[in-house]
Design a binder for these strands. Structure first.
Lengths: 231, 231
DNA sequence: CGCGGCTTTGATGTTCATCAAGTAAAGTGG
DNA sequence: CCACTTTACTTGATGAACATCAAAGCCGCG
């Protein structure tokens, strides 16, 4: 993890309009002053379950996973999140510690704003408060919905769903570099590593995808969609 | 569903302090005026997936389930909620329609407040806004956490977990009337009705519980806790 | 270059869904 | 209130889906 200082001011930040649009200049200054930029490398843990929550973070670039570790030490991934997702909005107002861990899957840049600053803004700017409510609601919905979509499918459908998710929501391409290991895929879809691999191999044999190492290419999109729907 | 008028004013409502504590008298009046009371019978659907969200509800008494129906018509229960849970806080600020259905499991009384009224209060009273954020955060956390707890266990552990949940969080007794059918238990723990029944029968044979029809009694609490932990 | 983590495949067994079939209970209309 | 219909409950038999165990090749990295 490294502290950086790439952005001079939030004024021109792309993510400004997602959440901070309703702030006036004075309020912006408060954010700008309390704001810190961090860069996390692939694999680095950003926050661990149980860490105190005293700031609000959002992703400027990269990819992260939200996960929980069970008593056997096995991780269960709740969701993958990309820039624009306000990952630390979960639990932030209901608990003083993180209920989930957050780790960087790819090199990830975050902006970190003191929780106190956020609270003051919510108190002083009601439009902003509604905006936070909206974002928080959305991210919760996404996590719940993602879990639901996974749980109602069986392995093939789950893998297909995940590949489509990566292709459509993260990379916007039919060919991409798998950002996560096969074990992590398993942790995400509640399946063992072996079955995950077996299913991927099967997809390759069936000509639905082609892959070499981490490079994935969806060669039969329609078919994959059909597997995701019916499986 | 029936419209009632049991409560004269919110002033003495037990649930006032959970959320509405920070309102002044004038704000209270607004709530009181826009407020409607409804009673739903066992089994009645309160809201269906896709219904427009234009009010905010909370449970005064009873028990409800949040659920989604998949394309095969099979229901998946996301959570059971009891008085004090602000069930309609999910999705309320991120979507204009319900993403989940809500149904009464026992006779349920709700207070229904126009969304517009809620929004005005959030805008005018920042302490209230923080309170809503807190409640929303909590209910999302609970749903996510519940799903996580279920998904990491296998059948026996899931059933044990659910029985303990009902005993500890809903009824505060070791003996209670099962509020849901065996099929619904299955929908809640992502398991077939048959396996649910088989597992309950097994628990009875093993002397962990005794049951006749819907009446459940946990006879070996320690054992059930152990099954919930290890299973 | 060797160690540890990732990947892959096979063999085997367990868990769980499905199908079937019957009893019990609960709701419904005359 | 009773006959009828539907829904809930229960048990058994069978097979499919999936986990587990084992073994080996691969790859990146210190």
């Amino acid at each position: 993890m490294k502290l950086t200082n790439e952005i001079e001011s939030c004024n021109f930040c792309f993510y400004r309009k997602l959440l901070f649009d309703s702030l006036n200049d004075a309020e912006y200054q408060k954010v700008n002053v309390s704001r810190k930029e961090y860069v996390y490398n692939r694999g680095e843990i950003i926050r661990s379950e149980g860490d105190p929550i005293n700031s609000f973070m959002y992703l400027r670039s990269g990819l992260i996973k939200l996960y929980k570790t069970d008593k056997n030490g096995k991780d269960h991934i709740l969701s993958l999140n990309k820039p624009g997702d306000f990952i630390s909005l979960l639990s932030i107002f209901s608990d003083s510690v993180y209920k989930y861990s957050i780790a960087a899957i790819e090199e990830t840049k975050v902006c970190d704003i003191e929780l106190q600053t956020l609270n003051k803004l919510i108190t002083s700017n009601s439009e902003f408060a509604l905006r936070v409510l909206n974002r928080m609601s959305r991210i919760s919905d996404d996590v719940i919905d993602g879990q639901f979509e996974i749980s109602k499918r069986q392995v093939k459908g789950r893998i297909a769903y995940l590949l489509l998710f990566l292709s459509e929501n993260i990379y916007h391409k039919h060919e991409f570099r798998l950002p996560i290991t096969r074990r992590e895929i398993g942790e995400l879809i509640s399946m063992t590593t072996e079955n995950t691999i077996r299913t991927l191999s099967e997809f390759r044999k069936d000509g639905v995808i082609s892959m070499s190492g981490k490079i994935m290419k969806i060669t039969d999109y329609k078919r994959l969609e059909s597997i995701s729907k019916t499986g």
